[in-house]
């Protein structure tokens, strides 16, 4: 009983902020709503007994990605008056499509016999760690490579080119072109 209640709470914690993420006009609000969603997802992981994943989610997603997102949100703020209006035209097709996708997925979920069964959750950290080093060593290394490339790429993207500095910024009188 309490398990169900916990589940429902976790579900709500996941879904409701997600809705706010989608519909909120204020991007900062959306960012913070995303925080809650991610929390909810971590909770769901924990509920399913995936302890390692839950913690990884908290650390990486919330502690890394979300922070990054929020940083970027802050850095790319435009003055208040220049916000573009929403317009309804894009909501309709998007909404229709989303609903259709959801409907499709839901149909799939309910009409297929997944052969699910209950087991007791067990600690997974040791097993995951072992698998990382044995069965999934290659993906592990590849992913680290990908991370490296991503970092380099992001650094390059961020780099300030000489070409993009046409106008002298305030405060800096001498700009080398």
């Amino acid at each position: 009983m309490t398990g169900d209640l916990v589940f429902i709470l976790l579900a709500l914690l996941t879904i409701v902020p997600a809705v706010w993420v989608v519909f909120s006009p204020n991007i900062v609000h959306a960012g913070f709503a995303l925080l809650f969603t991610l929390f909810g997802v971590a909770g769901l992981y924990a509920y399913m007994g995936a302890d390692y994943i839950a913690v990884t989610q908290l650390m990486v997603y919330i502690g890394g990605v979300l922070v990054l997102v929020l940083f970027t949100v802050m850095m790319t703020r435009v003055p208040q008056g220049k916000r573009a209006n929403y317009g309804l035209d894009r909501f309709v097709p998007a909404g229709v499509l989303s609903l259709a996708v959801f409907g499709l997925l839901y149909k799939t979920i309910t009409s297929v016999d997944w052969g699910a069964g209950h087991t007791e959750p067990v600690p997974t950290v040791a097993e995951i760690g072992t698998n990382f080093m044995t069965n999934y060593i290659f993906p592990f290394e590849y992913v680290s490579l990908v991370l490296l490339v991503a970092m380099i790429g992001a650094a390059i993207l961020i780099r300030e080119n000489k070409n993009t500095q046409d106008e002298p910024e305030n405060g800096e009188s001498e700009v080398q072109s």
Partner: peptide, 8 residues
Amino acid sequence: AYVSASVL
């Protein structure tokens, strides 16, 4: 959107 629609 087109992709999603196509998949659907």
